[in-house]
Lab assay of single mutants.
Amino acid sequence: EKTLKIVADSEEEAEALAKELAEKYNLEVTIERNPEEEGKYVITIKIKP
């Protein structure tokens, strides 16, 4: 299993990107607040072998 993390500037941007990735590529995608940067969100994508 591989994990890729993407940082987005807004929750709306994160949700839109996560939804597109999940639907288009059938990936497991989660969104959470970035504890290191206020106002940023981390999109985590898990790629199963």
Rank of each mutant, 00 (worst) to 15 (best):
A18E: 02
L17R: 05
L4S: 05
E23M: 09
P49C: 09
I43T: 01
L27N: 06
A8Y: 03
E20K: 14
L27Y: 15
E15L: 15
E12N: 06
I6P: 00
A8V: 15
K46G: 04
L4G: 04
I6S: 01
I45C: 05
I43Q: 00
K2L: 12
P35E: 11
E13H: 08
K48Y: 14
Y25L: 06
E32T: 13
E11C: 08
N34H: 15
T44N: 06
E37P: 05
N26Y: 08
E38K: 11
L21K: 00
E15N: 15
E20C: 14
E12M: 07
Y41A: 02
E32G: 05
E28D: 11
V7N: 12
A22L: 10
K5A: 06
I6E: 02
P49I: 14
E12A: 11
R33W: 06
A22Y: 12
I47L: 15
E15Y: 15
Y41C: 03
K19M: 07
A14T: 01
V29L: 04
E12Q: 11
T3P: 06
P35F: 12
L4C: 15
A18T: 02
G39M: 03
K2A: 14
E15T: 14
E1R: 05
P35C: 07
L17S: 01
E1Y: 01
E37H: 14
K24R: 11
I31Q: 01
K19G: 04
R33L: 10
N34Q: 09
E12S: 09
N34K: 05
P49L: 15
L27G: 15
Y25W: 06
A18N: 01
N26G: 14
I43P: 00
K48C: 11
V42H: 04
A8K: 03
L4E: 04
I6N: 01
S10N: 08
I6V: 08
L21M: 07
L21D: 00
I47A: 07
T44L: 07
Y25F: 10
I45V: 13
T3N: 08
P49H: 15
A18I: 06
V29F: 11
E23Q: 12
T30K: 07
E15Q: 13
A18Y: 04
L4T: 06
K5D: 03
D9S: 11
K2M: 08
T30N: 06
G39R: 03
V42G: 01
I31D: 00
E23P: 02
E11Y: 15
E37V: 11
A16F: 09
K46C: 04
S10W: 01
I47Y: 14
K24E: 03
I43A: 01
K46R: 09
G39D: 06
E1A: 08
E15H: 13
E37W: 14
E11W: 15
I31K: 01
I43R: 00
E38P: 13
L27S: 15
T44H: 08
E13L: 11
E13N: 04
A16M: 12
Y41T: 03
E20P: 01
K2N: 14
K19Y: 06
T30C: 07
K5F: 13
G39A: 02
V29Q: 00
E28I: 12
P35K: 10
A16I: 09
V29N: 00
T44K: 05
E36M: 11
E37D: 13
R33T: 08
I31A: 01
I43W: 01
E32Y: 04
E11K: 14
K24F: 08
R33D: 03
P35N: 10
T30V: 12
I6H: 03
E36I: 11
K5G: 03
K19W: 04
T3M: 12
K5I: 14
V29T: 04
A8N: 01
R33N: 08
Y25A: 02
L17I: 15
A16W: 09
E38R: 03
A14F: 01
E23G: 04
T30F: 08
E28H: 09
E37Y: 14
V29M: 03
A14Y: 01
N26A: 08
T3H: 09
N34T: 06
K40N: 05
K48T: 13
L17C: 05
E1D: 13
A8T: 10
V29D: 00
S10Q: 01
L21R: 00
